[in-house]
């Protein structure tokens, strides 16, 4: 195992990360020997072709899945030292998510979707901060709309408001503009970066949108499960 020194400022680190899965065709390597060090407040794009292992890496860094080899440190804690519930707690306190498919809960209104992480964290009056956030993302007039009554861009803005609700240390975004047209996608990126700047959040995003990658402080390129640049 690598003994890469961790700087005080590191918020996400991966050491000797590898992931294999067993399929009908035999062992399949998705990631191997990934070393990574992301500083607090940094914005990092993970880029690469389809099937290069981008989303798998994101899932591992966020603690949604466990690696086959190597270790991950997230917000000061080694993920392999936590059980599933411990990782869930860590996500609840430190991590925000934005997904390609939005992942809004269809039975909740826009406001309730944004309130949910606050309610889970035990905030008593979650409606006011949630409404403020929705106004911030330009949906002040659509608080009571259900996801299916919103356009794709609007849904993603609700998702972003939800992700920032707990003021996370790290925001993981999986192809946040993948389901949107160029113009809408552009506005979503602006929103993401301006909130990132306001809250000083670390941004880790998976994309194959070059414009988006260029906006980040740096890009990590994956090819067949290895970092190539």
């Amino acid at each position: 195992m690598s003994t890469h020194p961790l700087s005080e400022n590191t918020i996400v680190a991966a050491q000797g990360l590898g992931k294999q899965v067993t399929t009908a065709a035999g062992e399949l390597t998705i990631l191997q020997a990934v070393e990574l060090d992301i500083a607090r407040g940094e914005s990092v794009a993970i880029v690469g072709a389809s099937g290069s292992g981008k989303s798998t890496l994101l899932g591992l860094l966020a603690g949604l899945d466990l690696p086959t080899q190597g270790r991950i440190r997230l917000a000061g804690e080694w993920l392999d030292e936590l059980d599933e519930d411990g990782r869930a707690r860590l996500r609840g306190e430190q991590v925000g998510f934005v997904f390609q498919s939005f992942q809004l809960l269809p039975s909740l209104t826009a406001l309730e979707n944004v309130m949910l992480p606050l309610e889970l964290a035990g905030v008593d009056k979650a409606a006011a901060p949630a409404a403020t956030l929705l106004e911030r993302v330009g949906l002040g007039a659509r608080l009571d709309h259900y996801p299916k009554q919103l356009s794709g861009g609007e849904q993603q803005r609700v998702a972003i408001a939800r992700a920032f609700a707990i003021e996370p240390a790290v925001l993981f975004a999986d192809e946040p503009t993948g389901n949107l047209d160029a113009a809408t996608g552009g506005r979503i990126i602006e929103l993401l970066f301006s909130l990132n700047a306001e809250q000083g959040t670390t941004l880790v995003l998976v994309t194959h949108d070059d414009h988006l990658a260029e906006r980040c402080d740096r890009a990590i390129r994956l090819d067949a499960g290895r970092i190539v640049a």
């Binding site: 599933e84 519930d85 869930a88 707690r89 609840g92 991590v95 992942q103 949910l116 889970l120 964290a121």
Partner: peptide, 12 residues
């Protein structure tokens, strides 16, 4: 799944 992403453990 979303609740778990948002930090809820199994007991929760």
């Amino acid at each position: 799944a979303v609740l778990r992403c948002l930090g809820s453990g199994q007991q929760r």
